[in-house]
Design a protein around this nucleic acid. Structure first.
Lengths: 213, 213
DNA sequence: CTGTCATTTACCCGTTCGGGTAAATCAGCA
DNA sequence: TGCTGATTTACCCGAACGGGTAAATGACAG
């Protein structure tokens, strides 16, 4: 994959809150002759400013960040720079995470245990304007896309469910009568393809629809 | 924290499946004059052999590893080398993870976003024979310790619960009558301090008692 | 303006769940 | 051997849940 003609290297920006990981990633990228790191930050809130200042060719973005999440940071960057090429690089891989990342405009989604050479290939591919998604993650994305969207109310109810609330309690909290809550659960069960509330809770957590933190 | 007298550096071994993270961590450690990396592996199964070969002073051990988990790897090492000083360094921090790590003989438990200097301090402290636990994680550990132990059967039932099974289904699967399952849930609810099965499921996941994978 | 969809509430009914109580068996420990 | 704790089962009862059906409102798009 080495370029025969000497060209300007692809300028990469790293967004990850683990200093050690940034350091390792930087070393890894610099070890490729056609890649170089021009910017780093560990905080999602700084990502846009840093992008503005450095105008990198490709951004490697973690999802779980202090301050602003990776998805929000990506959205912010792409709002101002619609051509920004962002690769999400993370340890988490729920359907929702992948979906939201791609929705937010990320061109690729890689797991942190991706082999070095694949990462380099992905950076080059994304820089060239391609969409790079592994077999496995494409499948995940497809699965997520065929799942019906949840409405706001359904999300609210799900959120309360994760807090361990009963139908009555959920009703009180959301200013609804119990029957309404039950109605929402009915459609929720159908959409998530589950039989009861416990399965719904687990499914929601597993797919990343809700978070425990 | 620099040593005034030149001494042999503390020899560190890294066990983590992310190559980039290992690289960054190694760079970070080498940047300290009194620390050096003498061994690395990304697979828990290799950890013992590598330890045997290199006899490091301190091991930095990730928990989620391919092959053998970090806890099991730590146990294996400490069985043969009871004086082995292991620091668990991971992104996950459920009560159970912390508890099991310390149980397995780890001398410290650090999160991967621990600042560089704290990590170095921890390595030195553990090498000197100390037990290094942050305020926050000590509290977590204490919480876990005051939670009553779950019996094998209770774990079985909990496991089935996470699969979304009903009492009847759990009974069938475990060759028990439904009443027995209900009895186990009763004690389970009391031990986990929850009101119903959904809360139990969430609590178990949150505390790391069961895993979704 | 009309159809679609989210949202809300209502009622009925059978099933499941959670709590209380009781008791038998078995293993390990004092 | 007698006590403790895990495990098992049983019965009762009220509360919570899940499914079916129906319908009204409001918003938004065609």
């Amino acid at each position: 994959m080495k370029k025969l003609k000497k060209t300007n290297p692809i300028r990469v920006m790293l967004v990850d809150d683990h200093p050690a990981y940034r350091k390792g990633m930087a070393a890894l990228i610099e070890s490729e002759t056609d890649l170089t790191v021009v910017a780093e930050t560990g905080d999602g809130r700084d990502a846009l400013q840093v992008y503005r200042a450095k105008k990198p060719d490709v951004v490697l973005m973690d999802l779980r960040l202090p301050g602003l999440g990776g998805v929000e940071a990506t959205l912010a960057i792409r709002k101002e720079f619609p051509d920004a090429r962002v690769i999400v690089l993370t340890t988490f891989d729920t359907d929702e995470d992948i979906f939201r990342a791609i929705q937010s405009g990320a061109k690729s989604y890689l797991l942190k245990d991706t082999p070095d050479d694949e990462l380099a290939t992905a950076i080059r591919g994304v820089h060239a304007g391609k969409q790079i998604l592994s077999e496995k993650l494409s499948r995940r994305l497809a699965e997520r896309q065929q799942r019906p969207e949840l409405t706001q109310r359904e999300m609210d109810v799900l959120q309360m469910l994760i807090k361990g609330r009963s139908n009555r309690e959920i009703g009180t909290a959301l200013f609804l009568c119990e029957d309404t809550v039950k109605a929402h659960f009915k459609t929720l069960f159908a959409k998530l393809k589950v039989q009861d509330r416990t399965e719904a809770a687990i499914s929601a957590i597993r797919h990343g629809i809700v978070h425990l933190d």
